[in-house]
């Protein structure tokens, strides 16, 4: 190989190295958001689960609590039968109230009505209340 060819080869090796470096950075930049979207948050589920005592929820009554930073409610509709919902009205986002006598939820903003099962009974709400998973462990109610 003569001197001229060597120069060309060294020059191309340098250019290829620089290109490979830039390519690696760009690939990383493209893959990072995908990885961040797909990777589960560490311990998120355990942290997000809320434990309540059964005593906090009277029969036929409701207990409001904070779930993942937003208001939620748990009901005891029959003895030992608990259901939980987001306490945010699906109309414009106001916090609903429990009407024990009528066994239903009322939104004080625009009179949206929801049943104890979260279904829309009347008013402007377009969707039922968001239902939350409930499980029981000893004397605790686990929501989420």
């Amino acid at each position: 190989m003569d001197t001229g060819s060597k120069d060309f080869a060294r020059r191309r090796a340098l250019l290829a190295t620089l290109l490979a470096g830039i390519g690696a950075v760009l690939t990383g930049a493209a893959l990072y958001p995908v990885w961040r979207f797909l990777a589960p948050r560490k311990g998120a589920e355990a942290q997000d689960q809320v434990a309540l005592s059964r005593d906090q929820v009277p029969l036929g009554g409701a207990h409001f609590f904070n779930f993942r930073g937003r208001p939620a409610v748990v009901l005891q509709t029959r003895a030992g039968h608990f259901t939980a919902f987001s306490a945010v009205c699906t109309h414009l986002g106001c916090v609903i109230q429990w009407q024990a006598a009528e066994q239903r939820f009322l939104c004080p903003c625009h009179a949206g009505l929801f049943s104890a099962e979260g279904a829309v009974l009347g008013g402007p709400p377009p969707r039922p209340l968001e239902s939350l998973a409930v499980s029981l462990r000893d004397d605790q109610i686990l929501v989420g």
């Binding site: 001229g4 060819s5 060309f8 020059r11 191309r12 250019l15 290829a16 620089l18 290109l19 830039i22 390519g23 950075v25 760009l26 930049a29």
Partner: peptide, 24 residues
């Protein structure tokens, strides 16, 4: 903005690489 600058740099390097093959 960084990605755009890197893409511009990559296209410049490509042009130089192509030029190098042509000159040889």
């Amino acid at each position: 903005a960084g990605v755009v600058i890197l893409l511009l740099a990559a296209s410049g390097l490509f042009a130089l690489l192509r030029q190098s093959y042509g000159r040889q």
